[in-house]
Design a protein around this nucleic acid. Structure first.
Length: 466
RNA sequence: GGCGACGUGGCCAAGUGGCUUAAGGCGUGGGUCUGCAAAACCUAUAUUCAUCGGUUCGAAUCCGAUCGUCGCCUCCA
């Protein structure tokens, strides 16, 4: 299996430290607002990577942190006149709700910065003892000049960075590139007591601390959005590796942005849709298919039209599953020759190549066409075929990609009295037998208005929810 | 100013030296089935991969130039 590693800018053979275990850390949200659909893409794609590793037989420990101390949180809490705790617990709940709606598998741990103050202090102390961090009147900074590998992830040279006009001016820093690991608290800000005085951790240090605490000093995969490469992940590496003397993460994976009109979707630009807003309008499977159909590292231009087109694709998949579930009870029938193993192989080949989900989706769609064709062309098929087809779709499209939800399809039933619908269908069949097309169409239309779609087929009339 | 990514059909998008004179999804035209529809299937939709040069027996795929788009260098998934 090949994985693209930002550290080397190459696809590399994936070799976990301690197989079959895999440790994976994904930078999660700052819980001060609803997350937007661009964040959603990162979360969903990291979910798919995790699920594929599980599919491959790995035992994955998946950690996603929640940042619950930071300037934005403090600012927003002040604006609303609530405590930071109140604010973060509100958006933590919202986050949990939204990722569940996105059909994400829950992480093994959702660590929070505020719950890891001791671990954070320990790292800062180590850095200070090694002379890499320095304390200026209660503000502790990381001395970038003391770490040789600085810039190895982002490919930036410290000299070039200094030339850039955009580094923060701060007289307390020895070097403008130095960053805070501990911030002294100002009046009215939440604080934690420490040997440097009352303050709070810098942003980057929390991820170092939580990754090490829950997964170890060196982990297999560390992932996040493209914009975290610099400075966030660069700084995490600097802190962690300076503190432990060991490699922090073996594989760094970064997700491409979701764009709006070719521009990065971001809170600061204001060109975003919240995930929950989009999830109110479209099923999670359609959104996941949209993400799956492009590569995780490429930018993806987002528009309603694109989700609608993904939803059509998703409908096609769902139609096949409904058909399979309906037919599966027909035990007798002829055996059909179909090479399911080949499909698994094609699927795995695609995913093994740096999670080529677009190719994997193509495998699923090819499969869908072939199975539909077999069902159309053969009258009486042994249920073994249906079972295997269902198993394949469950293993791949449902369990790995999450673009089909079998549980939902198995349990779906119109929220109406089923017997009544069957009576209507019977009445329509009667009308059809009498060639009373007007009545037959009226019945179909009236059911349609109630959200029931009728479909005639060789084996009779079936219905589904709109 | 420094660094990096990208430009493939009407739209989205995979492919990154010969298997591919380019997957898959959506759309569109034609057809099968049907009373009609829906669903499904069949079929047609790029001699061409931003442009121009070069390397090679062979390039969408490698190299160079040009044009264009975007990102990072500040909080950001």
């Amino acid at each position: 299996m090949l994985v693209y590693n930002t550290l080397t800018n190459k696809k590399e053979e994936f070799k976990p430290i301690n197989p079959p275990n895999v440790s994976m850390y994904v930078c999660g949200p700052t819980i001060y607002d609803y997350f937007h659909i661009g964040n959603g893409r990162t979360f969903v794609m990291s979910d798919i990577i995790r699920r594929y590793l599980i599919f491959k037989g790995y035992n994955v420990k998946f950690v996603m942190n929640l940042t619950d101390v930071d300037d934005k949180i403090i600012r927003k809490a002040n604006e609303e006149g609530v405590s930071t705790n109140e604010l973060t617990s509100r958006y933590e709940k919202a986050f949990m709700t939204d990722i569940k709606r996105f059909k994400m598998k829950p992480a093994d741990v959702y660590p929070k910065a505020t719950e890891h103050m001791h671990e954070i202090e320990d790292i800062i102390e180590k850095l200070e003892n090694k002379g890499i961090a320095y304390n200026v009147d209660g503000n502790v900074f990381y001395d970038v000049g003391k770490f040789n590998g600085y810039g190895k992830l982002s490919g930036k040279k410290t000299d070039d960075l200094e030339l850039g006009a955009r580094v923060e001016i701060n007289d307390e820093k020895k070097n403008p590139l130095d960053f805070s690991v501990w911030k002294k608290s100002k009046e009215g800000e939440p604080y934690w007591e420490s040997k440097w005085g009352n303050g709070r951790p810098g942003w980057h240090i929390e991820c170092s601390a939580m990754s090490m605490k829950h997964l170890g000093e060196t982990i297999d995969i560390h992932a996040g959005g493209n914009d975290l490469i610099f400075p966030h992940h660069e700084n995490e590496i600097a802190q962690s590796e300076a503190a432990t003397g060991r490699q922090f993460a073996n594989y760094w994976m970064h997700f491409g942005f979701l764009n709006i009109d070719k521009q990065k979707m971001s809170k600061s630009l204001g060109n975003f849709f919240t995930a929950r807003d989009i999830l109110d309008q479209f099923p999670a499977e359609a959104l996941r298919l949209l993400f799956v159909q492009s590569h995780y590292r490429s930018p993806l231009n987002f528009s309603k039209e694109l989700i609608e087109s993904a939803q059509k694709g998703s409908d096609k998949l769902n139609n096949l599953v409904r058909l399979l579930l309906k037919e599966i009870d027909k035990k007798e029938g002829k055996l059909v020759n179909y090479d399911f193993n080949r499909q698994y192989k094609l699927f795995a080949e695609a995913m093994d190549d740096d999670f080529n989900t677009s190719q994997a989706a193509a495998v699923i769609f090819d499969f869908t066409r072939e199975v539909n064709k077999i069902i159309v062309e053969n009258d009486n098929i042994n249920s073994k075929f249906y079972e295997e087809a269902i198993k394949f779709l469950k293993d791949t499209a449902n369990d790995v990609l999450g673009i089909i939800d079998f549980v939902q399809l198995e349990n779906e039933a119109p929220n109406l009295d089923e017997g009544w619908i069957l009576d209507e269908i019977e009445a329509r069949l009667q009308a059809k037998a009498e060639k009373n097309w007007k009545l037959a169409d009226e019945i179909r239309n009236s059911l349609f208005e109630k959200g029931i779609i009728l479909e005639d087929s060789k084996s009779g009339t079936t219905y589904k929810k709109k």
